[in-house]
Design a protein around this nucleic acid. Structure first.
Lengths: 216, 216
DNA sequence: TAAATAGTTAACCATTTGGTTAATCTGTTT
DNA sequence: AAACAGATTAACCAAATGGTTAACTATTTA
């Protein structure tokens, strides 16, 4: 059976998945080596194939896990019961935090998805619903209620995602062009956590002036 | 000698670089196969090594070429003699056009840079200047002149880049979540060409109305 | 406790892959 | 045309790589 008895116990199968995750995230499907995964897991290479029949199967497991971590998290943040502006702040803060804690995840997902969109996405046909319908509806409603300017909800959502994700996947480039070290980069990203919501809200908010002195 | 005489003449060396570019851009360093590059170039694999000694050297040539296409182009767009708002429109339009014409470029650059930042960037030490100094200065000046709100130029530049690049590298994801086909995606991107400048300008422009509104 | 089952390994295998060699071809120079 | 230099190729090679086999070792189970 899979479970032995010793308390600090991690199954071989778990160790494999953990190691595979790390290697695949860092090096991608093509760059990853089964031997390296086995070594990192502290087991024999044959055992990889005992649990996961092939490199592809193992990769699929890792990728599915990645998407199933990411998508529900995004959904959860976007579905929070908050007014639009608060939600934008809330999302930015927590999403960037999540990405920073999983530095390799975004590039990994984007790259592999780009390599093989149909093959990968076909496995996620109906499973998790990718569409951020609640958020989209909320934007649409805010427009209708004249709380924000006329805005295409689809574009706004992509704007939000862009502003959060891009700086992280472009980390090496940003460190280069702004001459930052690791610490400087972290500061830059933390600054962004405030900057992004302000930037977005400034753009979509309606300037209520003239008549009543619309305090913020 | 390298040059023959026939008019429709492309050197083997050129054919190699062209094929290598295509393959590396699409499949990345690890995914690319020397044999495939040779086949696509219509030459023998040994000839690859005759001109470029190794896979790495060939890759370096391709990557350098990519950066040397991209960076000066970005610089050129950012250095145009235009008022800030016009420049933002001008940049968005032309940069997105450039990226759409080279769909694989952004993911390629980002991915390989993420795989091996120091190794790759060390080769571009002083060569091309990565920093968009003219644009940064222009923003700073616009702030000083009260033409736009108080804005961190570094953040604004990254905002602009994010909004242009991300939608393109996330193409498969966007097609999935919005249920678009190729044509629908192109429409979405074209819509963005208008959307992005509006979005940015709305955010940073100063609302000049009635009483002075010096708010940050 | 003995048979059966699950977990684990060392050794092995076939294929792929980047790279090399030595020979051949092609055009130029003398 | 003979010599020469660069261009091009077929054949080859060693290392790496994903995957398999057969044996060995717990762990369940009857």
């Amino acid at each position: 059976m899979k479970n032995s008895k010793n308390p600090p116990d991690v199954t071989a199968e778990q160790k494999i998945l953990i190691s595979a995750r790390e290697i695949f995230h860092k090096k991608g499907f093509e760059g990853a080596r089964m031997q390296e995964i086995a070594d990192k897991a502290g087991i024999n290479k044959a055992l990889l194939h005992y649990y996961y029949r092939s490199k592809e199967k193992l990769f699929d497991a890792v990728f599915a896990e990645a998407l199933k971590t990411l998508i529900p998290k995004v959904k959860e943040l976007l579905d929070a019961e908050l007014p639009l502006f608060d939600k934008i702040k809330y999302f930015t803060d927590n999403y960037i935090k999540l990405l920073m804690e999983n530095m390799y995840l975004p590039v990994f997902v984007i790259y592999e998805l780009f390599q093989n969109p149909e093959k990968i996405l076909s496995k996620f046909t109906e499973k998790s619903n990718f569409t951020p319908s609640v958020f989209i509806a909320q934007i649409r409603k805010s427009v209708k209620n004249k709380e924000i300017k006329k805005t295409d909800p689809r574009q706004l959502f992509i704007n939000l995602m862009s502003l959060c994700i891009y700086p992280i996947i472009a980390k090496p480039l940003i460190m280069k062009i702004y001459d930052l070290n690791e610490q400087g980069f972290n500061r830059f990203i933390n600054q962004r956590k405030k900057e992004i919501p302000e930037f977005i809200i400034n753009s979509i908010k309606i300037n209520k002036n003239s008549s009543s002195n619309g305090k913020k």
